[in-house]
Design a protein around this nucleic acid. Structure first.
Lengths: 340, 340
DNA sequence: TTGTATGCGTTATCAC
DNA sequence: GTGATAACGCATACAA
């Protein structure tokens, strides 16, 4: 990669100083039209494009943001990333995606890598509630915003989430309206705010509807296809089995549907299943999963915009952004009236 | 973001020069153990982490690569990105993902953005065959490698692909072995090497097996769910309909399955469907799509490793990497014996 | 309106 | 082994 042309080369050819080149590059107003033209010509004939690294060093802005996800191959994150990437492009921001585990060490490494790269801000799409590593960054006024999952106990934190508790209630209420009284709940680890809140919603809805809260109907272990499948399979084979399953994620709902098929239960005649997230495949006619929509696009776009406004506002003393969107019940074909 | 601590601050505290700080940072051998320790102590007490931007400017290496995809929310790219991100992490590389259209303008913008950011190399996961914009970068010796889809007509180009022609033949042969003689082919635009090669494979296999080549059974338009759905639906309703569909991507196969369901055709009894890619959902029990596997993980890992070796080898005169992996036939439940 | 000079935070090349 | 000092390629305050 030798022979890179620099702003000096352009300057020489256009018979101006390098500062002037910089000025036209940055669209400074007070440049004579004629010189501006000369510089542009020189830029074109030399095929010059500025070195963003040098630019960043001088300006202390990289026009790059970081996005931390847990697993980009997971549809939820993939769809989120797509929206954020395309949206960021509009504002001339690039994004470095870090695909990392959610434990404190991995998270710290991710954050400090991004900090090292001098990103202008970070979107954290997957964190645990007890994450405290982020504190010092907030104290420094570094723009960080949480998407979907958020942390607890840090007042200054910014986040955009969906009302998970409400969403869970909507799901349970939908099932109750269909005469289900014995509803299993499949959750991931409640160390994540999403699962925690959804679990709260489930419990409240169970109480509100006068149902019996039964520990044996609850799964809150790892988000593992096989484990959820096994758990559901056991329940399906039970004499006194639940007539409906509420899964905390669509991904888990798929495992439950699998277990239903395996045990010969027909959905929705023998058993109803409802998920959470509304990932793309949920609307596939072979899946047609009833679910609670996260309104991903709105969430993602809003998150990016808030981050950019955090980046571009000098007074970091404004109120923290704490945004909670309303979820939406989407009824497809995996839920029906209980007829046991 | 004030109060950043620099290598100078560390130097002062450790009572050494900033150069020495740089030396221990880069693990230079000739530093006295004792001073090295002092520097490390200073680094820790100050919580110093080097500014990678400044580092990049001075060293002309960013430890960042670019990944250009067409749509990260597409499972194929999402799964690819996951593998590449995780693998790159191991070598201390970060990755900037650009989600862009494949037309020349978008591509050029993407490349020049990445070039501006001084990435050390680029993986292009989605290009059209006729792409020529990349030529000048090759001439400069800039490391670029194509993944999955490649360009034609540039001898120096590096790529890792699967043998698409062979894969297509395997698919058709599998159907023929199941006594299908009338096989529809659903392709995307043949301006992409993947679709082009698969189409070639289809045609050859049709000929090799003595089948009749029938234009009315061929779709090679946009990769649009709705359009493919419509095309398939029309064929399904045909009196003299094909008994099998070979889709150039799993995504398209899903649309075909949808059309089958809509028209009351039972898979695989009335009609067989086989895809290409083996995306994750293909193995879902409700889909269980027969398909041709791309061996995505191998491809992705290999691509990254080749890129890194291009980056780290000074003599750019080695042979271009032209790697073609063998695809694999995966038989699931959407293909069966023709019994018409 | 334009040029000069300095700085951004490192690495790298010299000296010593 | 270690310390000055010059790049790296720009932005920017200050002069003119």
């Amino acid at each position: 990669m030798k022979g890179r042309v620099s702003a000096y080369d352009v300057a020489k050819l256009a018979k101006v100083s390098q500062s002037t080149v910089s000025r036209v590059l940055n669209n400074y107003p007070h440049v004579r039209k004629e010189t501006r033209q000369r510089v542009h010509d020189a830029i074109n004939t030399l095929g010059f494009s500025p070195d963003e690294i040098a630019r960043s060093l001088a300006s202390k802005k990289t026009n790059t943001i970081g996005l931390i996800v847990e697993d980009i191959s997971n549809s939820f994150y993939a769809e989120t990333a797509h929206i954020i990437l395309r949206e960021a492009q509009k504002y001339d921001y690039e994004v470095i995606i870090i695909d990392a585990e959610t434990d404190e060490n991995s998270f710290e490494r991710a954050i400090s890598t991004l900090n090292g790269k001098r990103v202008d801000g970070i979107i954290v799409a997957s964190t645990r509630m007890d994450n405290q590593k982020v504190k010092e960054f907030y104290d420094k006024g570094f723009p960080i915003i949480f998407y979907n999952r958020r942390i607890y106990g840090i007042e200054e934190s910014h986040y955009v989430e969906v009302d998970n508790k409400l969403g869970a209630k909507m799901a349970v209420n939908h099932l109750v309206e269909n005469k289900h009284r014995k509803i299993a709940f499949i959750s991931g680890p409640t160390i994540y705010s999403t699962f925690y809140q959804r679990f709260e919603g489930y419990k409240e809805a169970v109480q509100d509807n006068g149902l019996e809260y039964d520990e044996s109907l609850i799964y809150k272990g790892e988000v593992s296809y096989d484990q959820v499948f096994q758990f559901a399979l056991n329940l399906m084979r039970d004499e006194d089995r639940p007539t409906a399953f509420f899964a905390s994620t669509d991904q888990m709902a798929l495992a439950i549907m699998d277990a239903a098929a395996r045990s010969g239960r027909h959905i929705p005649f023998d058993v109803s299943v409802i998920g959470f997230d509304d990932i793309e495949i949920a609307s596939n006619p072979y899946i047609s999963l009833s679910t609670i929509s996260q309104r991903k696009r709105e969430m993602a776009v809003l998150t990016l915009q808030k981050l950019l406004s955090l980046i571009n506002s000098d007074d970091s003393n404004d109120e923290p952004n704490k945004i909670t969107l309303e979820p939406e019940l989407i009824i497809r074909k995996t839920t029906g009236v209980n007829n046991q």
